[in-house]
Every structure is written in structure tokens, then in C-alpha cells.
Design a protein around this nucleic acid. Sequence first.
RNA 1: GUGAGUGUAGCUCAAGGGCAGAGCACUGGACUGUGGCUCCAGGGGUUGGGGGUUCGAAACCCCUCACUCACCCCA
Length: 429
Amino acid sequence: MKYQAPRGVKDLLPPESEAFRRLEDEVRDLFVLSGFREVRLPIFESAALFFRSIGESTDIVEKEMYLFEGKGGEKLALRPEGTASLLRAAIEHRLAEPGRTSRLYYQGAMFRHERPQAGRLRQFHQAGAEILGPNDPDTDADLIASVSRYARETSIPGSQLLINSMGCDGCRPEYRKRLVAYLEDHKKHLCETCVRRISTNPLRVLDCKVEGCQPTLNTAPAITSFLCPTSREHFERVCQALNEGDIPYTLSPRLVRGLDYYTETAFEWVSDALGAQSTWAAGGRYNGLVSSLGGPDVPGVGLAIGIERLYLLREKSGTLPRSDAPPVTIALHPLDDDSRGYIRTLLTSLRAEGISCVGLFGSNRLKKAFVSAEREGARYIGLAGENERGSGTITIKDLGTGVQKTVPVAPIPQLASLLSSGFPADSTP
RNA sequence: GUGAGUGUAGCUCAAGGGCAGAGCACUGGACUGUGGCUCCAGGGGUUGGGGGUUCGAAACCCCUCACUCACCCCA
């Protein structure tokens, strides 16, 4: 094979492509139902935007970004996530202003140069929703509730909500100090990467999955016992709101989001039906991010759903959305060469009436036309030869029921409505 | 970036040193204005690529590429 898709990217073919689109629509509907409006964002941005927002010492920035230079030498990057882009746009167009609330969502391809595996691609798709403005726990809880409810309604298999608090600029530094001290003391029981992270990104040590590290990490100081009164109250009220809303969750003191910008509430939805990449949606509050990107001091909270992972889950549970409407209403076949023009005219007229149709011009054999019509997924086949042409009619057969009828082609709207409303069952062949 | 597993027809897979095969799919015919069935025939392959061992390699060895899964990381 001369050309094939680059590593880690996938072609989506029918019918999977259609199911994927329906899933995206489903998520869009979910956001719209909660008052979010869409922002279409560019697929690349100034690289510095991501360095700044995601964090210099994260893996994404250190080794996973697709970087390239514009003609003028400007440093650009394919977006590895959506929040940074959305906030950039919100700040640039004055949608993030103190005292007002913006609910915005985005949806599209993201790019990270990682080794592909189950549920992990180099080009993948996320849909994310961000609320800029409010800083109250009820907003967090409401956002969380919308996704948890969606998970329940669509029967996402094995889904579980994990939540934690990351504290704020006031209390996290103190906690961080205590954690580093603890980790230093227990260095000899930790793996190599953990030891390295003590100095680069100590909070992420908590995320380590190495078996040998677990005993040490289990007894490490938990951030939740170091929260300042404000952060503690915020977190407690989020949990309380979830309790009241009957949203099940698991407190996960060692949950640390991969991106540096999170503050206060952090949450993610995992599923044991997914393989090693078990997170299918995640988010959190980011109160300092807007201002650190040059905007006003506006707090925010948001989340993103990994569409491919959602797809995997729905596939596993056999609940992928499927379009039941046939792709083509009628396939038209000329019975002789003289009828080809008659058929072409009819195709144009029917499409003008919104009826999906194809012409079967490939073979003169009627038998093949039937096979082709079925392959096209057509509901009806329409035949025209000398007789139909002479009388201005078309012979239409319902491929499902076998019911057949010869009807006038004019007026076209009447023919169109016959095709879209369906054949009477009592017609005789 | 590291490790393991797998690469044979469009798809699913046989052949484990001795003629590269099956099922499905595809094309044509039986069947020239009425389909799904059946029967007959046909097209398809540098066995991922390169090198080596051997009289002989799809098979054994080395290199390489790709895919899959895992580590890592994350949606």
C-alpha cells in the first residue's frame, strides 16, 4: 500500500461515521439543554497559549504538542485541548466579563502526539462546556449533574463519578509544602518517576499507579484536610448539592487533574468498561485561568467529554445511536436507453422537493437494478420504460413490502408526498 | 519514549520447511419489464517490506515498517 493514514489517526467510515455524528449531536443537545451556546474555535493557536494555560511541566506541553512555524516564524501548535482556546476567544471578544455569565461549548478534533492505544488517538474529539462568571458551588454541582444524568439516561456501562478539591491559591501552596515534606521523607519507598516529580510536580505523584508506591501514597496527607475555610465550604457545598440531587459520587482525595490550571472542584467520570484509559469525561474549576491569560479576574468551571471513549462505551453496551431512516428514498432505473433523460429529469424534480434519490444507470438488466437499489439502501425502486414515458408515469415498488404501483409523475409535489408519506398497503402489484 | 502480541485475497481465517487455500464479499452467466433463493463460471496475492539460513521459506533467524494492547500520560 502506497499511502496509509499516519499513526494514531483514524478514518471513520459508514456506518460508524454516522453513529459518531449522532453521538456528537447527542452531546451538543445535552449542552444546549443546559443553556450553552456554541463557539467554533480554530484548530491551531499560538503555542504560547497552551504553555501558559496547561502548564510548562505537564506531559502535554513537554512532549505531546504538534508544534509548527507559520510563514512569519510565529510558533503555532495544533490544539491539544479546548479550554485554553475557548478562554482565549472569550477574552478576545469580551465574553468573559466580571458580573456576567457566559455558557459556551465547543466540539471538535484535538491533537496529542502520544502512543496510540485503546481509547487513545493522536487526533481525537472532545466536546467541552465552560461556564465563565459564577463562582458558587451550585454551578459546579449543576454542571456535574448534567453529565451524570446523561450517563445514567444513556446507560453508560460501569460509569463512576470521582470528585476532589484542589484548593485555592491560598491553601494549595501550604498543602504542597506539607506533601513535598512527606514525600521527601518517604522517598525510598517511591518509584523513580515519583521521586523525580517531587520537585517538578508533586501533586501528580498522588496519581501514580505503581503498586509499590500505593502504601506510601495512601498515608500521604490529603489535600482535603488542608483546605482553607473558603475552599472547604465550597467543596462541602458541592458534595451536599450532589447528595440532594441524588448524584452518586466517590470522594477521591488523590484525584489530580492532569492540567495545572484547576482550582477548587475537580471531577472525572471513569468506567471499568473502557480499558486502561478509563476516563471518559473530566473537568473542574479554574478560577485563576482567565486572568492569567490576560483577561479580567473571572472564575470559571468546565468539563470535556472524550467522544471516542464515549463511543467505545456505547458500543460496548450496544446503545450506539443509529439512524433508522433509509439513506435514499427512491432509486430510479431506466428500462431502456431512451428513458435515461426521463429519469434524470425526475431525479432533479424529486430532489427539488426534498426527496433523496439516486439514478441506477449502471446496467440495463432489471435484476441488477433491484440489487443496486438495495445496496443504496433505498426504500423504493422506480422504473420507467417506454410505457411510463408515454403515459407520464412511473412504476414504483416498495422494496420492503413488495407493493407496486404505477403513478403519474405530475404534479411532482403529489408524487413527492406519496413517497415521503409511504405507500398504502392495499395497493396491488 | 519503553515493552509484549499480531501481520496470508476487500473481510474473517487455514496451511508450522515441499503446488498459497476456504468461507463471505466482488464480477459474469443460467435469468433481455420485476429483487432477496439456487446453481455454474470467473477475477483477484510480490504471504507488510528487506536481508539471511536452506535443494526448497508464508513458516526458521536478523533488521525494518504497520497494527493492537499495556507502561507512561490523559478525554
